[in-house]
Amino acid sequence: MSFDFALIGDSIPKILMGIGLTFQLLVLSAVLGLALAIVLLLMRISGRWYLAAPTMVYIYIFRGTPILVQIFIIYYGLPQLEFVRDSIFWPILREAFGCAILALTLNTGAYVSEILRGGVLGVDRGLKEAGAALGLSATHRFIYITSPIAIRLALPAYSNDVISLMKSTALASTITLLDMMGIARTIVAETYAPYEIFISVMVIYLIITWIIQRSFGWMEKRMSRHVRSEA
């Protein structure tokens, strides 16, 4: 078979028209997912079973099922319910974009809360004791001692999750959204040239991944200044 480079040149600008939507999906669900993850984490480590147990069930469900299924249930399933259509959330859930954001947020929130919990558990107990011995309240210890150290510990795993989330945004194309993947699929339907088009879109995703990796690498380095010893 022949490989049509001209077609790649033509389609990349078209695919890039979807990059704005890809970034909207990524940034919005990353920010909302992080907020959700923090709430889940605080419930999980609260030491109260009636707060911790629901989060464990929630995390199990959202980590244990394919995100594609979650997207379909939210997009095709929720509108069947009358109380959803009557609720104040309907303007959001009526739109494919709102459904995609909701699904990605709920999914990444489950993963990120576990990543953050790993960071919190990794903080040396002696440091928390030192804070306690100085008379710091539990809240102050969490904000000024546990959190900064836990964030540094969680950063490498978190950067993995952001990359994974970025790739998951492509699934939004299955519910009519014209993100980069949605546009690519449209072009393939018109040109019957899946090879060229999907390789083009792959290259663009790779470049975005590289940018995310480099940004997190820079952040890790900045946050590790204290670990670098001069001795």
């Binding site: 030192a130 804070g131 306690a132 150290i149 204290h226």
Partner: peptide, 29 residues
């Protein structure tokens, strides 16, 4: 917490806060 703030403690493993400079370790509490 108030009782603890009147009782200083020094640990075997130092337990300095690794993300803070020396002077900020001292200023925190």
């Amino acid at each position: 917490d108030a009782v603890r703030s009147e009782v200083g403690m020094v640990f075997q493993s130092f337990n300095l806060f690794p993300h803070l400079t020396v002077v900020k370790n001292l200023m925190l509490a």
